[in-house]
């Protein structure tokens, strides 16, 4: 039985899974002068959605489908994340999501992955298992990952740029058709094997994540 409203609980910005401390690369982009207002924020978010967002979306949908061993998907996430800093961030957020989700939707599948990866599995893989534990569909997992890939940077930009929060929300709303497309593409890709999952890359996000991780002073953890 699917429980559609659980998707609202899971993707609520107040869901306590650690996302509030991460900017999804927005802090580095703001510092570099590439994101300065709502228009440039929209460009940034669109780029992130169609690259890192698509990859996360595919992994989440695949994990939710339950066809593959989550540990295999975890390795697939490693292979799709060249930056060590981003791999650490993803695992840290996966661990935090695991903690919140095991309280919200206890399930043997979550317990098993938590035991197999005590330092954290990749966040999209955990997200997919959570989606299944909550009675949601692989398509829902794809949506959740796609949405998170833009809601994080947009929220961070409000704090970093003192951006009008209504404008930032409008950016996310304008990206809704793109999110639909990405989630559809990701859910479709699940029909193939692990190697057929999306492997899009955003080299600048990878490079600036490494630089950001070395900053002595920053507002966000990533």
């Amino acid at each position: 039985m699917t429980v559609a409203a659980a998707l609202l609980v899971l993707t609520d910005g107040r869901f306590p899974a650690g996302g509030h401390a991460h900017s999804g690369g927005a802090e580095a982009a703001v510092r570099a002068g590439r994101v300065t207002d709502s228009a440039t924020l929209e460009d940034f978010c669109r780029g992130r959605l169609h690259t890192a967002g698509l990859v996360a979306s595919g992994l989440a949908a695949a994990a939710a489908a339950g066809v593959h061993d989550p540990r295999t998907l975890d390795e697939a996430a490693d292979a799709r994340t060249p930056s060590p800093a981003l791999r650490r961030t993803s695992r840290r957020l996966g661990r935090q999501l695991m903690r919140a989700a095991r309280a919200a939707w206890p399930s043997p599948a979550l317990d098993a992955l938590a035991a197999a990866r005590p330092q954290g599995a990749h966040q999209p893989v955990v997200l997919g298992l959570v989606v299944a534990a909550a009675g949601l569909t692989p398509q829902d997992g794809a949506y959740a990952a796609a949405y998170e890939s833009v809601s994080g940077p947009a929220t961070a930009a409000v704090r970093l740029l003192a951006l009008d929060p209504f404008e930032a929300t409008a950016v996310i709303a304008r990206l809704a058709p793109d999110m639909d497309g990405v989630a559809g593409e990701a859910a479709e890709a699940v029909r193939g094997g692990v190697d057929a999952l999306p492997a899009a890359s955003a080299p600048l996000l990878e490079v600036t994540a490494e630089q950001h991780a070395a900053w002595p002073v920053r507002l966000f953890a990533s």
Binding site: P16, A21, A156, R159, A221
Partner: peptide, 14 residues
């Protein structure tokens, strides 16, 4: 992430 009270009250996971 610029919200110290969130990390000790609303989302304590980290």
């Amino acid at each position: 992430g610029a919200c110290p009270h969130t990390a000790i009250r609303d989302d304590i996971s980290a």
